[in-house]
């Protein structure tokens, strides 16, 4: 019974992710595309919950929906566009062909590899507590933790510097 429920939830999340992804990629209006992206992010958060990783689901909502989506929204706001949308220029046949090849080739190759070489998997994952994650961050993975802090700091400082570029050069 629980297994059927899990598969049903999985199917629901796949549906949410696929719908959101298609909207994010194909919507003419960028704000609608962003809403599609947020839908996908919620679907992926649901998958993390299904895999018994509630901390990751929380972080997904906090970082992606809370921070990155707002950043993208501000970017859309800063770019003034015409009344008939942002993606109005037409595409040549060559570009459409490249787009389809560009997503089909890696998807087919990776899909074949994954289906052809199934790895032994555990059906009931163990829950990782926040305590264990914290021990990992302060224990064996301290360097990665510190480096990502530096990367974030440099990215923020760089963004400020780049955005004030003109005023500096004068």
């Amino acid at each position: 019974m629980m297994e059927i429920l899990a598969y049903a939830a999985f199917g629901l999340y796949v549906l949410i992710i696929a719908t959101g992804g298609v909207i994010a990629v194909a919507a003419r209006n960028l704000v609608r595309g962003l809403v599609g992206l947020i839908m996908t992010l919620f679907g992926v958060a649901g998958m993390y919950l299904l895999m018994a990783a509630p901390v990751m689901a929380f972080m997904q909502l906090l970082i992606y929906v809370g921070a990155v989506a707002v950043l993208i929204f501000i970017a859309i706001m800063l770019v003034r566009t015409g009344p008939d949308g942002d993606e109005t220029r037409s595409r040549s046949a060559k570009e459409i062909l490249y787009a389809f090849l560009g997503f089909a080739a890696p998807a087919i190759i990776l899909g074949r590899v994954i289906i052809g070489n199934p790895v032994e998997s555990v059906s009931s994952p163990t829950v990782v507590t926040v305590k264990e994650l914290g021990k990992g961050l302060l224990g064996p993975y301290t360097l990665a933790f510190e480096l990502i802090s530096v990367v974030l700091l440099v990215a923020m400082a760089g963004a400020v510097l780049v955005a004030f570029e003109r005023r500096l050069s004068k």
């Binding site: 970082i63 993975y141 974030l152 440099v154």
Partner: peptide, 20 residues
């Protein structure tokens, strides 16, 4: 899970820079 946290951090940094 920590690897995914790292990816999320990188995504945030990347979004900031692309915005600029």
């Amino acid at each position: 899970q920590l690897g995914t946290l790292l990816i999320m951090g990188l995504a945030a940094a990347e979004a900031t820079l692309v915005l600029a």
